[in-house]
Nucleic acid binder design. Structure first.
Length: 216
DNA sequence: ACCCAGGTGGCCC
DNA sequence: GGGCCACATGGG
């Protein structure tokens, strides 16, 4: 019999369909988005990315050539714009110094090594590091965010014992698969954005069965 | 007017 | 290791 975590995945997929994350034109854009979306609505991040594109600033070299003030102005819509402009520059410097600004170079490193290097960068925490590993570099790391923890706890999948504990839960109970990790995390976010916003078990709730599972 | 969003670092204990 | 705070815009 399948583990509950797999049943939940099936229900999510049935309710919402494939999410096709991460929406971006390039791995570098994924990284920029991962930094900009920290504690921020994706809608506002899209505007910032559009601004960067319009200004031809969607590359590590271009970002480093931009003045702090200009970069802050470009990412303003994503909130925490001073911090985020600084984070982008610090990451770009790391990316150019360590990997010649090439994603393919970065992918060569071992996942665990990459993860600790990313975590050592100011402004890159666990979720951002793992988003980069999974969605930009195709490494088999399960991304945990606030929704993942909340939903998983409500569904009784696990008792949250911190980020690494939850990540380990998914990685050890799921088939080790990059596309699965990508899709599952995206679906959890999709559910997180929906539940509690629509009335639980209301007539048009697209996720009745899921609502029952999480006992709303 | 208030509350939150696909977190993180710094400080305190 | 955990608890609290600043960081900031935009939309419900």
């Amino acid at each position: 019999m399948a583990h509950k975590v797999n049943t939940v995945y099936g229900e999510l997929l049935r309710a919402f369909g494939p999410q096709g994350w991460w929406p971006a034109d390039s791995p570098f854009e994924v990284i920029v988005g991962a930094i900009l979306t920290q504690q921020t609505l994706w809608k506002n991040v899209e505007k910032a990315i559009a601004s960067l594109k319009r200004a031809k600033k969607l590359s590590a070299r271009a970002i480093l050539k931009t003045t702090d003030r200009d970069l802050q102005r470009l990412v303003r819509s994503s909130g925490y714009y001073r911090q985020k402009a600084k984070k982008l520059k610090i990451f770009c410097e790391f990316f150019l110094n360590e990997y010649c600004g090439k994603i393919t170079e970065m992918k060569r490193s071992r996942t665990s090594h990459l993860r600790s290097r990313l975590l050592s960068i100011w402004g890159i925490g666990r979720e951002t590091a793992d988003s980069i590993l999974l969605y930009a570099l195709d490494k088999p790391i399960f991304v945990v965010d606030a929704y993942t923890v909340r939903i998983g706890e409500r569904m009784g999948l696990f008792r949250s014992d911190g980020y690494e504990h939850v990540r380990n839960y998914f990685e050890s109970n799921l088939k080790r698969s990059v596309p699965l990790y990508k899709e599952y995390h995206a679906l959890l976010v999709q559910l997180g954005k929906n539940f509690c916003k629509t009335k639980p078990l209301c007539a048009k709730c697209p996720i009745k069965k899921l609502c029952r599972m999480i006992m709303l």
